[in-house]
Design a protein around this nucleic acid. Structure first.
Lengths: 233, 233
DNA sequence: TTAATTTATTGACGCTTCGTCAATAATGCC
DNA sequence: GGCATTATTGACGAAGCGTCAATAAATTAA
């Protein structure tokens, strides 16, 4: 499979260069800042060549998102393998999510843009499927930890509630909070300085609410988080 | 203040017609579906006239959002005035939020679009301030109920946690969930049929986690919700 | 009522971006 | 080296944006 002619090499490499050029533009100037002409000009290729790689700028944005999603899965997997009880493992996943937002905050911008139907519409089914699949894999990793907790009797979910239902709750709480934290200026106005800390607190309380043992009051969170962060690097 | 010349009348009325024309376009075809030329054509005015009302299409979108936010405040206020204990009142606010999403789901599309920096940038400070102020008013209504709960000793927040911190959590959980529910196709795939029910459940559990009395197991939710819905109409 | 002044409307214009495609150039194969 | 394949180019038409000088309508003053 690596019988690449020099030309194919060049093309492959150029794709990466296109994305590397586009990324800071999107990060700094958002959706409207990015244009195909601009990329072509910066890279000194004609526009047609850029279109050979990506059929529209929306494809570039989704490709940028895809550059990062793998990292999230990796972090989640590593977190789920944390040696400890199920409650510690779910904490590790929380830490992984937080680390991902902090380290790859670009990604949230791309995701934000792709949330617009009229943008996502223009992207290929194929790339959409990649994103969706990665999201599913993440959820499934979290779901696995929930199932283990139930199997271990660390957790009993209320009647009619599936592990996925709980995952949905955690997913909503964290993405909602991060999305507000990254896009709203009003948080400091209401005296919220560290939204990350707050997310950890709310997640802990929610899990306590479901009775996931050991409860947070029986955990030395600081110390566990320390250990987790070492594993996640 | 109602010394309006016929001309002024006409202008005012036309503004409403512009928005009424734009709304279904944005709802059906999203951000990219809307264009100034298209509105001008539909209303049989020249483009310049439309620009007399709104300096760009982003202004139209934020104006559409503003058409709805007042309703949210009204629902929240009504909910906060629900006759009952603090826990019932916070449930009422949850119901109000849910009702708002269901009845004004358009709004979430507009909000979604306005979350993009490169879109929001183009809107006037003035309209941005209206939106922000309405959001603050909503949060402040919720904050008031939390404060009342603390004053009544229905709730004690952990060390260092302010009422606003709790509001932030509820806000994150609900907006995160609604945003996922409205834009993701993967929910049914993981067996989540009724995200609204799930949000209620998670909110209840979170509040239980903080020990907000009476706890949900001591509440006949169905019956209370019935009453609440009557009040909110 | 009419003239003067203010205010509103118009659509053509210049500009940017998009996405395409026929002509041209480069590459790889025999 | 010559032929077939593949890639590159940039000019082009379409569409949208936002502006503005010319024109029309409305309001005010006389």
């Amino acid at each position: 499979m690596d019988h690449l002619t020099p030309k194919q090499q060049e093309i492959r490499e150029r794709e990466a260069r296109i994305l590397a050029t586009a990324r800071p533009i999107v990060v700094r100037e958002g959706y409207h800042g990015l244009s195909m002409d601009r990329i072509a000009e910066k890279l000194e290729y004609s526009k047609g060549t850029i279109y050979n790689h990506f059929s529209c700028k929306e494809e570039i944005i989704i490709a940028l998102a895809i550059e990062n999603v793998a990292k999230r899965i990796e972090l989640f997997r590593k977190a789920a393998e944390f040696k400890g009880c199920s409650r510690h493992r779910i904490m590790a996943i929380g830490a992984a999510a937080e680390m991902f937002v902090r380290q790859y905050s670009d990604f949230f911008q791309f995701e934000q843009i792709l949330r617009l139907d009229s943008v996502r519409e223009k992207t290929s089914e194929k790339r959409q499927a990649v994103i969706e699949s990665c999201e599913m894999q993440c959820m499934s990793v979290v779901g696995g930890v929930v199932r283990d907790a139930i199997a271990n009797a660390d957790l009993e979910l209320p009647e009619g509630m599936t592990p996925e239902s709980l995952v949905f709750g955690l997913w909503s709480l964290t993405t909602g909070a991060y999305s507000i934290a990254l896009t709203s200026d009003s948080l400091p106005l209401i005296g919220i300085a560290d939204p990350f800390l707050l997310v950890r607190q709310h997640v802990a309380t929610l899990l306590d609410g479901y009775g996931w043992r050991p409860l947070s009051r029986d955990i030395d969170s600081e110390q566990i988080l320390e250990q987790i962060r070492k594993v996640l690097v």
